[in-house]
């Protein structure tokens, strides 16, 4: 293994993309199915979470572009049809536009936007929600199609990422529901709607965290038990190696089990405030660990070869550039 080619910006991008997608998807599900016909009431309450989703996607795109070797030409991502990353970028763009249109309908300072976009808000939310689902799945599929990496090339990864994204989406909506400067739209019915959504998401997140723990343990332990030699080595790093603390204490403990206990203990300050934050941190940690577990099956002698090479900061590598070779 020469080095990690994808680092923190990609991990953050995957997290924020999934988070934004999860918020939009859940907002659409709540508005269109769970509380069907209540769009007028719920709209102002969901404007805050949708704005957060827009910020997440925009920030995620920034990190993605920042990671590029040549950021000024990022638009080239749209130029081929076969690449999965192109479809991801397309879905992100569409989602951000329709999310923006939805949020503009609730911006209190610009009545022009409000008047123009209000009639289309259900459609805008629908498109953003469907794209959000696509983005959640895409963040996992992007890694799982890279079959050179044993730990990524599993169908469990997109399922895990989608579950985690939905769970973090639940957490973010719980934290931001009803928080919106456009209080002129917020009626008593809107507040009651926000409380109802909160109750539903509380239960949904309990189920999702349960499922996530199951998928995560099944994936990692099956790699450890029956994976390829490379996958076993990676899984061992998670279970009992360098990442064990992050995995057991950080991700499983603080990211999933403790929030689950808080959720199960009923509605309280802990379950409303602390648990969602822990779920969000666990989601970010999951992306970090996955991106860092980019083990590729080495060629015979490859690790020996690259371990012997000087690191890029070795002094003699730069002597030529610095002009002090002699």
């Amino acid at each position: 293994m020469k080095r990690h080619y994808w680092t923190s910006p990609i991990a953050i991008y995957l997290f924020l993309g999934g988070l934004g997608g999860g918020i939009m998807f859940l907002a659409w599900i709540m508005s269109a199915f769970v509380f069907a016909g209540q769009a007028d009431v719920l709209g102002p309450a969901l404007a805050g979470p949708m704005f957060i989703a827009l910020l997440c996607l925009a920030l995620g795109c920034f990190f993605l572009v920042f990671e590029l070797g040549q950021p000024p030409v990022f638009w080239r991502v749209f130029t081929t049809a076969t690449a999965i990353i192109k479809w991801g970028a397309t879905m992100l763009s569409i989602a951000m536009f329709f999310n923006l249109f939805y949020v503009l309908a609730y911006v209190p300072w610009f009545p022009v936007f409000e008047n123009f976009f209000m009639p289309f808000r259900a459609f805008n939310l629908g498109v953003a929600g469907i794209m959000g689902l696509g983005i959640m799945i895409y963040t996992g599929v992007m890694l799982s199609t890279l079959k050179a990496h044993s730990f990524w090339a599993t169908p469990a990864l997109p399922i895990l990422f989608t579950t985690s994204a939905t769970s973090t989406g639940c957490a973010a909506i719980s934290l931001s529901l009803g928080v919106w400067p456009g209080s002129v739209h917020m009626t008593m019915a809107s507040y009651l709607g926000a409380v109802a959504i909160h109750e539903v998401l509380h239960v949904v997140d309990i189920v999702l965290v349960f499922v996530e723990i199951g998928i995560l343990l099944i994936m990692v332990l099956s790699f450890l038990g029956s994976g390829t030699r490379t996958a076993k080595r990676a899984a061992k790093r998670w279970v009992s190696g360098a990442y064990a603390g992050w995995f057991w204490i950080g991700m499983i403990g603080f990211g999933l089990v403790i929030p689950l206990c808080m959720y199960l203990s009923g509605v309280s300050a802990m379950s409303n405030g602390v648990a969602p934050v822990l779920v969000l941190c666990g989601g970010l940690l999951l992306r970090y660990l996955c991106v860092w577990t980019d083990d590729r099956q080495p060629l015979p002698g490859e690790e020996r070869y690259y371990n012997k090479l000087p690191k890029s900061d070795a002094q003699f590598l730069h002597a030529w550039e610095d002009g002090d070779l002699y």
């Binding site: 990671e67 070797g69 080239r76 050179a148 990496h149 590729r296 060629l299």
Partner: peptide
């Protein structure tokens, strides 16, 4: 002249 340096192909190559 077309590459934007996204490194997807670098990660896709099984031979590194």
């Amino acid at each position: 002249t077309k590459c934007m340096g996204c490194k997807v192909c670098v990660n896709a190559c099984p031979y590194g």
